[in-house]
Structure formats: C-alpha cells, structure tokens
Design a protein around this nucleic acid. Structure first.
Length: 151
DNA sequence: GCCAACGTTGGC
DNA sequence: GCCAACGTTGGC
C-alpha cells in the first residue's frame, strides 16, 4: 500500500474539515500541476496520505487521511463557476484528475516544517526541498515511519 | 506583504 | 526548440 503527502491550505480544507465529515468523502480536486496529477493518478483505494497545512500560521503535517476512490476526471475543470475551471481541457480527454479521501486521524501534535527539515532521513522528500512547489508527492515507508516516530 | 523559486505561456 | 515574461506558490 503506497503512501503519500498532500498539501492544503487549512482555510480551504484542513484536517479538521476531514474530521468533521467522516461520513462523506472529500473530493480532492483542483490539482493543476502535471507532476502532482501523475501522482494522484497512481493513488489506489486504501492508500494513506499525510495532510500538510501550508500558507498558514502553523505549517506542518497535521494528520492522516485515506483514499476511498481512485483517480477520476476532476469535475471542477469543467465547472464554469469553479476557480479551477480549465476551459482548454478536452471533455473527451480530461487533463485533470481527482480522488476521494476520508479522515483517518489527527497526529497527536502538528509536526512543524522546521522539525521535518531537521529529521535525518527526510532530505529526499520534495516537501523539505527549497523551492519545491509539488502539492502531491509520494512518501516512502521509511519516511512515513520516521515522521510518525517523530511526533 | 515580500520575494525567491518554480512552471507555463507564447513569440520568435 | 529556445527563452524571456509572466503568474503562482509558499515560507518568512
């Protein structure tokens, strides 16, 4: 079972938003970067995903969710009212993918970015690399366990 | 709010 | 195919 990390601005969709709707999956839409899209496409049902809070007061890994529906065409790319509308995406060959995810748990404490940067063994994780803007990325089992043991 | 780093766009 | 200009991301 593969593991992943996904960035989100908590104002948009925080780990608490996941926790507050455990009966209804969150549609992870709006990814508009090809590399991140490819990772989304590789996600399988049951895969676990770290939720990372960015562009906010407390930056870091906040919790874990899991995939309950594998990649399908992101509806927001065709939605005129969505900020994620991509008018150039062909309807018969959509560019962008979404997955559905549900809450698993919050970490006992938020693991801040500066701690993640200081952990030996995470230097290959795109998240901690300077200038990295990748919003969905794979996490190895070793990295996953290291992060959990640092909480 | 600033700004460095990055990905995308579009002219050539 | 190159690359400058531009818009966006995201930490600080």
């Amino acid at each position: 079972m593969a593991k992943w990390l996904a960035k989100t601005e908590p104002d948009e969709c925080s780990i608490d938003d996941f926790a507050g709707r455990i009966d209804k999956a969150v549609v992870w839409e709006g990814v508009r970067n090809y590399q991140a899209r490819n990772f989304l496409r590789d996600m399988a049902v049951g895969d676990e995903v770290f939720i990372y809070h960015s562009s906010c007061r407390h930056i870091g890994i906040a919790g874990i969710v899991k995939v309950v529906r594998a990649a399908y065409p992101d509806p927001s790319q065709f939605d005129e009212k969505s900020p994620y509308l991509d008018a150039k995406s062909p309807v018969d060959k959509p560019r962008w993918q979404a997955v559905d995810m549900v809450f698993v748990n919050k970490l006992p404490r938020l693991l801040p970015l500066d701690e993640l940067k200081s952990l030996p063994g995470l230097q290959d994780l795109a998240l901690v690399k300077k200038g990295s803007r990748l919003s969905v990325m794979p996490v190895s089992d070793a990295e996953w366990n290291l992060i959990l043991s640092a909480v």
